[in-house]
Computed example of a mutant assay.
Amino acid sequence: MMRFAIILALLAPPATGQDLTIATGGHYPPYIFNPSTAEATGLDKALVDELCDRGGYSCTWVDLPMGDIFQALARGDVDVVTGGFGYSAARDDIVDFTCPYVSSGDDTGDLMALSDDIDLNTARIGVLDQSLYQSAMAQAGRSTKAYPTEEAALAALTQGEIDVVFGSHNARLLAGDSITIIGTYPTFSGGSALAISETAPQLRADLDALLAEVSADGTLSRLHVQWLGSDQGDVIARCNDINALT
């Protein structure tokens, strides 16, 4: 009976005419470039704009600090969080997630330092606040210092406040030749998904239905090729139900 209800929810036509506030958590290529500007683009910008068009939603985009974005969603300040965010159990404690539109997401992070002569057992590690990189280091039992942006963490590394930055491949690009990659570590991402308030189950079902539509007709595959360089196929069809990530 539960599986039948889930299937009906996925097949039901979405509500239209609703105003939605879409929140991103900073510049995070290739998912979101230049958020909260007229030049905003990327996989998630193109995908969510497509969902807004098909669903008849009036969508407004805002960019929020990483340290507050999921709490803002839980408070009801915004309706959807996007920008390459991976599923995690900690995030799932306060918000809900759609089926993943990218099957694996960024499932490793880079350990970056100014030289390769670093003892990771005693290193001071900087991470992006409220990120999967922070939770992965906590799971590994490492002490970390959180920063509001990866740029701030890289600046702290340069100034000697920390010994290592554990962060995204985008941070590596930002740092350029000034840093050394001394290793990688898993972030235990469950795939990139849209985050929705726990108090909006119908919106989550509607967005899952729209995701299933754009995945089935090849639109999502075209966006994967454009922004990720590879076709992941009909990824939503591989999501057995809307609670698959848990």
Rank of each mutant, 00 (worst) to 15 (best):
Lys145Glu: 14
Ala9Thr: 01
Ile236Cys: 05
Asp110Ile: 07
Ala72Gly: 00
Arg204Asn: 13
Ala152Leu: 05
Leu173Thr: 07
Glu198Gly: 14
Val78Lys: 01
Leu223Ala: 10
Asp117Leu: 08
Ala123Ser: 08
Gly126Thr: 07
Gln71Lys: 12
Tyr185Gln: 11
Asp241Trp: 02
Pro201Cys: 13
Trp227Glu: 01
Leu245Ile: 13
Gln232Met: 07
Glu151Ile: 11
Asp234Ser: 04
Ala74Val: 02
Pro186Asn: 07
Phe70Leu: 14
Tyr147Leu: 04
Thr21Tyr: 08
Tyr133Phe: 15
Ala140Lys: 08
Ala244Trp: 10
Leu220Asp: 09
Val80Arg: 10
Asn121Arg: 09
Gln71Ser: 14
Asn34Met: 10
Thr180Phe: 01
Arg238Ile: 00
Ser178Lys: 12
Leu11Thr: 05
Ala146Lys: 07
Val95Ile: 15
Val225Ile: 14
Thr82Ile: 14
Cys99Tyr: 04
Asp106Trp: 10
Pro30Met: 06
Gly76Lys: 13
Ala90Gly: 04
Thr98Arg: 10
Ala113Met: 06
Tyr31Ser: 13
Ile242Gly: 13
Ala46Ser: 12
Leu132Ile: 12
Asn121Thr: 13
Ser143Glu: 13
Val235His: 04
Gly83Asn: 11
Gln71Glu: 13
Thr21Arg: 11
Pro65Lys: 05
Gly183Leu: 03
Pro186Cys: 06
Ala237Phe: 04
Asp234Val: 02
Val214Pro: 09
Ile6Asp: 12
Gly86Lys: 03
Gly83Ala: 09
Ile94Arg: 08
Asp208Pro: 07
Gly190Phe: 06
Leu157Lys: 00
Tyr185Asn: 11
Asp77Lys: 09
Leu10Glu: 15
Leu228Cys: 12
Thr24Gln: 00
Cys59Trp: 08
Gly218Tyr: 02
Arg172Cys: 03
Thr37Cys: 04
Cys99His: 07
Gly167Pro: 06
Gly26Tyr: 01
Ser215Arg: 03
Asp217Asn: 15
Pro65Ile: 02
Asp117Trp: 02
Leu51Asp: 08
Asp19Phe: 07
Asp19Asn: 13
Leu211Trp: 03
Gln18Trp: 04
Ala15Gln: 12
Ser88Cys: 05
Met2Tyr: 09
Asp116Glu: 08
Thr187Glu: 02
Pro201His: 13
Ala193Trp: 01
Trp61Ser: 09
Arg3Thr: 08
Leu51His: 08
Cys59Gly: 08
Thr41Met: 10
Glu151Val: 08
Gln18Gly: 01
Ser178Leu: 10
Ser197Ala: 15
